[in-house]
Design a protein around this nucleic acid. Structure first.
Lengths: 164, 164
DNA sequence: ATCGCCTGGGTGATTTGTCAACAATCTCGT
DNA sequence: ACGAGATTGTTGACAAATCACCCAGGCGAT
C-alpha cells in the first residue's frame, strides 16, 4: 500500500548528508579531545552535566536515562563505573522503596568544573566560531522544536486531547 | 597564561545545549529504528552508503575510516564482521602492496537498497518534516562550512599559504 | 490479605569499540 | 642498494554498550 517512498529532494539530500557528516566529525573530535584534556568520556560528561543541572545534584535513574536517550541498563552499568571512580553515588529513594537516585559527589563537581572550560573552548574552536549569531539562533529554535516533536507521542494524529 | 575561559553567552549556551540534545535523541531513535526495520546498525549503514557513493563501490580502508571519523582498528573489526555477513569483501590493492580495498557485494547493495526507503521515511518523520526549507538550506550551508573547517589544518593561524 | 501485573532498577553474556603494539610495505636520503 | 622512518592495515586484550532476563517493590482488584 505505501508504495511512495517520498524520496529526498536533492536539496534535502544534501543538507541531511552534510548534517550527518558534521555530527560524526564533531562528535568524534569533541569526545576525543574531552578525553585527552580531562579524562572524562563524553558519556561521563553528559551525566555530570545532567546532574549539575538538577537543583540538588540528584536524579532518578530512569529519568536520567530517558533524558539522554540511553537504555536503563546502560545507565546502570555506567553509574557503577562512575561510582567506582568516585564521581557519583547511588542513594536509595525513601518514598519509592525500589527506586534510587544518582547523586553527584564533590569529586564529581570538581571534575566538571575542571573539564567545562576546556570543553567549551573546544566547542568554540570546532563549532561556534564558524557560525553566525543568526544561524545559531535559528539552529537553536530548530533543535528545540525537533526535540519537542520527538518527545511527543509518535503519531501526531493519535494525540487527540493534549492541548485541547 | 590563558586565564580567559571565553564562557558561553546564554544564547550560545542554549543553542548548543539544544543542539546536543537533538543529536542524542535523533541518533538514538534513528539507529534503533534502522536496526528494527532493516537489521542494519547505524555503523553498517554508514559504511554501505560510503561505498555506494564511490564510483565503483570500493574504497581504501584508511580513506573510509577518515571519512566517517573512525579509528582504523574499528574499521578493520567492523569490516571483518560485515564480511562474515556477506555485505562487503576485502580485495587487496595491486599498486599498494600493503593496502586493501573494501568492496560492496551484491548482497550489500541489496541491503541498502532495501533499507534506504525506510530510513529516509524515518528521517522525514523525525526531522525533515519539522524543518522549513529555509532552515534546511541554512543548516546545510552551516554544516558544510563547519566540516570544511574541521578537515582543514587545526590552527588557522598556522595555515599561512592556502588562500593567500 | 493476596494475586496479577506493572514499573524501577540490576545482572551476566554477547557484541562493539578502543588502545597499544605489530608486521608488512613503501619512501627517501645517502 | 640499504637502512631509518613513515604509512597501511591487522590483532588481541581490555572497556563499554546492548540484549534478554531477573528481582523487588508498588498498585489495584477482589
Amino acid at each position: 500500500m505505501n508504495e511512495t517512498p517520498r524520496w529526498l529532494t536533492p536539496a534535502e539530500q544534501r543538507a541531511w548528508r552534510s548534517f550527518v557528516r558534521m555530527q560524526q566529525k564533531l562528535q568524534g573530535r569533541l569526545s576525543r579531545r574531552l578525553q585527552a584534556d580531562s579524562g572524562l568520556s563524553e558519556a561521563d560528561y553528559t551525566v555530570l552535566v545532567e546532574l549539575t543541572d538538577a537543583p540538588d545534584g540528584r536524579r532518578r535513574f530512569l529519568d536520567l536515562a530517558k533524558a539522554v536517550e540511553w537504555e536503563k541498563s546502560r545507565m546502570s552499568h555506567h553509574i557503577t563505573r562512575m561510582t567506582k571512580r568516585g564521581l557519583v553515588t547511588r542513594v536509595e529513594c525513601p518514598e519509592d522503596g525500589r527506586g534510587a537516585f544518582v547523586v553527584i559527589t564533590p569529586a564529581g563537581h570538581e571534575a566538571i568544573r575542571a573539564a567545562a572550560p576546556l570543553h567549551v573552548e573546544a566547542v568554540r574552536e570546532m563549532f561556534l566560531d564558524h557560525v553566525t549569531p543568526a544561524e545559531l539562533d535559528m539552529l537553536g529554535h530548530l533543535c528545540e522544536r525537533v526535540v519537542d516533536r520527538l518527545d511527543a507521542p509518535s503519531h501526531p494524529a493519535e494525540q487527540v486531547e493534549s492541548g485541547a
